[in-house]
């Protein structure tokens, strides 16, 4: 079933929207990019330090060290979310805290904390993936499509 088309805007609506857009404060995109770069970069640099720590002190190579490294970053992000600090850092850092694995950890833990009041199953269990779910859905879909292309490429083209 096709959704009914929305009626087109009236002249008055169009005039007002232009008028309102003129004075709307814009997000400082360049500054936000710079902040995201600095904070996101610092998180990644910190992750590198953690990885090196595991490689030099334990029996890990660069590949196997990534699991405990991610676990450490997730642990810190969840802790900061629980203490109510992560969202304040994120207002400053924007994509800098959203893109690394810490953002995923924050999305899941904040949903879990938020819905604790509705119980463990109906609340936490049902809602934990509320924000992180799309990442999994579209990540898996994209992986499937890419894998399909790669396979077919090898089959016919290779």
């Amino acid at each position: 079933m096709k959704m009914k088309q929305k009626p087109p805007l009236t002249d008055a609506q169009r005039t007002y929207q232009k008028f309102a857009a003129k004075d709307e404060p814009q997000s400082p995109v360049l500054l936000n990019c710079l902040k995201a770069f600095l904070i996101g970069g610092s998180i990644c640099a910190f992750g590198q330090l953690v990885q090196d720590f595991f490689v030099y002190n334990f029996d890990f190579n660069e590949q196997t060290a990534s699991n405990p490294t991610i676990a450490v970053l997730i642990f810190i992000a969840v802790l900061l979310t629980g203490f109510g600090v992560y969202d304040k850092i994120a207002q400053f850092a924007g994509a800098g805290t959203a893109v690394p694995v810490t953002g995923f950890a924050n999305a899941m833990s904040s949903s879990a904390i938020e819905h604790r009041t509705e119980g463990l199953v109906q609340g936490v269990g049902t809602n934990m993936f509320k924000l992180a779910g799309p990442v999994i859905v579209f990540g898996t879909t994209a992986a499937f499509v890419v894998a399909l292309i790669k396979t077919l490429w090898g089959y016919w083209g290779g």
Partner: peptide, 17 residues
């Protein structure tokens, strides 16, 4: 916040408006 936007502890950057 939790009803209209995101969980309170979720780190989403809000615009100046």
């Amino acid at each position: 916040e939790r009803q209209f936007r995101y969980p309170t502890e979720y780190g989403a950057q809000k615009p100046p408006s």
